[in-house]
Amino acid sequence: MLEGKKFLVAGAGGLLGSKLTADLISDHAHVIAADINLELMKERLVSQGLDTKNRALTCIMLDLNDASSVGALFASISGIDGAVNCSYPRNKRYGSKFFDVSLADFNENISLHLGSSFLFMQQCAAYFKREQAPFALVNISSIYGVIAPKFEVYDGTPMTMPVEYAAIKSALLHMSKYVASYVGDSGFRSNSVSPGGIFDHQPEQFLEQYKKQTLGKGMLDIEDVIGTIKFLLSDSARYVNGQNIIVDDGFSL
Rank of each mutant, 00 (worst) to 15 (best):
G4S: 10
F251H: 06
L172S: 00
D235Q: 08
F188P: 02
S47E: 11
T228H: 09
V101D: 11
R130T: 11
I110T: 05
I222A: 15
S116I: 13
V138P: 04
L45S: 01
S111R: 14
L173R: 10
K150L: 12
L50F: 03
K19H: 13
E43A: 14
F151M: 14
M161R: 09
I25R: 01
L57C: 06
I168P: 01
Y165I: 05
Q243R: 14
D100S: 14
G145S: 09
L64T: 11
E204N: 09
M1H: 15
L103D: 13
S190G: 02
N191Q: 08
I168A: 01
L62S: 08
L103T: 14
G13I: 04
I198Y: 07
L16C: 04
I140E: 03
N65H: 04
V70T: 12
I222N: 13
L103P: 00
M161T: 11
H201L: 11
A83K: 04
Q122G: 01
P158N: 08
L50Q: 01
L2P: 08
H174K: 12
E131I: 09
F7C: 04
S117N: 12
E204Y: 05
C124T: 02
C86I: 01
S252P: 02
D235F: 01
I140C: 06
G49N: 03
S87P: 08
L2D: 02
L112K: 13
I245W: 01
L114N: 07
F206Q: 07
A75S: 15
V9P: 10
F151A: 09
L16V: 06
G71I: 03
G13R: 08
R189G: 01
L16P: 03
S142G: 07
L2W: 07
N107S: 14
K211Q: 15
V247D: 02
